[in-house]
Design a protein around this nucleic acid. Structure first.
Lengths: 211, 211
DNA sequence: TCCTTTATAGCACGGTCATGCTACGTTGAT
DNA sequence: ATCAACGTAGCATGACCGTGCTATAAAGGA
């Protein structure tokens, strides 16, 4: 055999090329030819690792969803403060920081958000991609619910809040912020994103817990 | 001449065909051929009214943005209660109803929202469409600011709110709701949309104004 | 050394695309 | 009745697309 290559690694490299093309020119330009050129591979080589163009798309989105899910979990783990004796204000700050993790506040996450928006909107008319859009959606929504439940358990939230309804509101707010950051970066920069999130977290938490 | 036809009307019919194709199969399928077939016209006929495919796209989005802007204005006009003696609770309800006007709560607005999302996301990688995406964005944002200022003038809002920041939050919330309604209709139906909006309006308005 | 396996490369085909150009009716004014 | 203007239709071209298929090169076990 030739160079001894990890096939899965190659597929991931191709997927990264898909991401770059999709960010730069849109997913509809992620043709076999364009992707191969972007990856620096011959068209025949790419086809050695995929059944066809549809296969590339599906792999790329599955890979993206899986990676995004793992990062989400890792960040949640890292920021989870298991210290029940910390002052409530710290818990509130930790909650806000966790929500902020999914916002495109730096270049890397901004790029990730561009790919995310491209994929989830394209999934509406590409049935093969839909399962992964659903998976990402439910991953985030599940995390939000768990965080709000934990916060409520610590008495951080305003009294009488409907957790499920508030989760909807936070979810919609975070995705709306991400969408605006991607589509209108001049109008909604990192500071504005953080400001809106801060305002929202402040409003759903108990004033007594913030002191 | 043959049938005596209003050219502008013809262009609008073609644009409607673009909307239908974009909703059903995505904007990337809105080729000259597909659009002509959808409009029930010969490909040569369509080309008689447009310079080319790019011209069709730009006209379609401009037409969409213009129509959406007019509907927005008309709805705002219709619902604007110029009666300063009405009880505050009615004013709050009117504010919420106005925000609800932009949400895809029925089939027609749902279809409109699908086209909207397709266009604004596509505009990111189609420079010719960007001006109209900006226009729609600023139309909505401007309306929200004016409504919040009017509400604040009537003393409906909580004390100490930053109108501009709150406008960002409402804007992001409305667009996030619309996006979720389009992409995940099963998870976020009309009732959930209304519930989230109601919760939000309740939270930014003065409790005293709601009685 | 040879030969099987695997990576890489690319040709050829049929299809769709946008578009330049030509041709054909149809219509209404002269 | 004639003809210029305009709507309609479609052919020809060249580009890009996905994909079936074949060919070459490299590597490691026999």
């Amino acid at each position: 055999m030739p160079k001894v290559v990890d096939p899965e690694e190659r597929r991931r490299e191709v997927a990264e090329a898909v991401f770059r093309v999709a960010r730069r020119e849109g997913l509809e330009q992620a043709s076999l030819r364009n992707v191969a050129a972007e990856a620096g591979l011959a068209i025949g080589s790419v086809r050695h690792y995929f059944d066809g163009q549809a296969d590339i798309m599906i792999f790329a989105m599955r890979y993206f969803a899986q990676r995004a899910g793992e990062r989400l979990k890792a960040r949640a783990q890292r920021l989870k403060t298991p210290d029940p004796d910390a002052p409530p204000a710290e818990h509130v700050a930790a909650l806000e920081a966790l929500f902020a993790e999914v916002l495109p506040l730096d270049g890397e996450r901004r790029e990730e958000a561009e790919v995310w928006l491209t994929f989830v909107t394209s999934a509406r008319t590409h049935p093969g991609l839909e399962p992964y859009a659903t998976q990402m959606h439910e991953n985030l929504r599940g995390l939000i619910v768990r965080l709000l439940q934990a916060a409520d358990g610590l008495g951080l939230l305003r009294a009488g809040l409907d957790i499920e309804a508030e989760a909807d509101r936070v979810h919609v707010l975070l995705d709306g912020l991400t969408m605006h950051a991607v589509l209108r970066p001049a109008a909604l920069g990192p500071e504005e994103l953080s400001a809106v999130l801060h305002r929202h977290v402040t409003e759903i938490t108990d004033p007594a817990a913030r002191r």
